[in-house]
């Protein structure tokens, strides 16, 4: 019922929007994470994303299951792109549907926070004068 993928293909929002839409749905939130040109005054030329694909897809599936436990009645589709991405391209799409809008907003935000914390995906910023793997948040298992 849910859809989770990590792919080198261009992400098309409609695919995920349609996937979560059905007769019980009254609201869909669609989040797109976009490649930004300027970060802290530094200009990015492009990004390279890499993933541990089987584990990343498994963890996205777990995030989806968590969301459905916390907010029954939701449906979730998440896609993350890997490879070389240009400025303004879409790196991640999260679609969450629900009978009412409040839960669709909350669950969508929960999904992106969990992805940034847990899912084994990495981005490298490439600048005019160098490059760096971005090490955002560190997860420590208990």
């Amino acid at each position: 019922m849910n859809l989770f993928e990590v792919t080198p293909e261009v992400l098309c929002p409609n695919r995920y929007l349609q996937y979560v839409t059905h007769a019980e749905v009254g609201a869909v939130t669609l989040f797109s994470g976009i490649v930004r040109e300027w970060t802290n005054g530094k200009r990015t030329l492009f990004l390279e994303y890499e993933a541990y694909v089987p584990m990343a897809e498994k963890m996205l599936t777990e995030i989806g299951a968590d969301i459905q436990r916390k907010w029954p009645g939701t449906r979730i589709a998440i896609a993350h792109r890997i490879g070389k991405l240009q400025i303004s391209e879409t790196a991640v799409i999260i679609a969450v549907s629900s009978p009412h809008r409040q839960i669709a907003y909350e669950a969508n935000e929960f999904a992106i926070e969990q992805i940034k914390k847990l899912v084994p995906i990495w981005k490298k910023e490439i600048w005019e004068d160098g490059e760096k793997w971005v090490g955002g948040q560190t997860y420590k298992p208990l």
């Binding site: 994303y49 847990l118 899912v119 981005k123 793997w133």
Partner: peptide, 10 residues
């Protein structure tokens, strides 16, 4: 076994 550096997806 995989070594997972701090993740930065999204």
């Amino acid at each position: 076994v995989a070594f997972i550096p701090p993740v930065s997806g999204g």
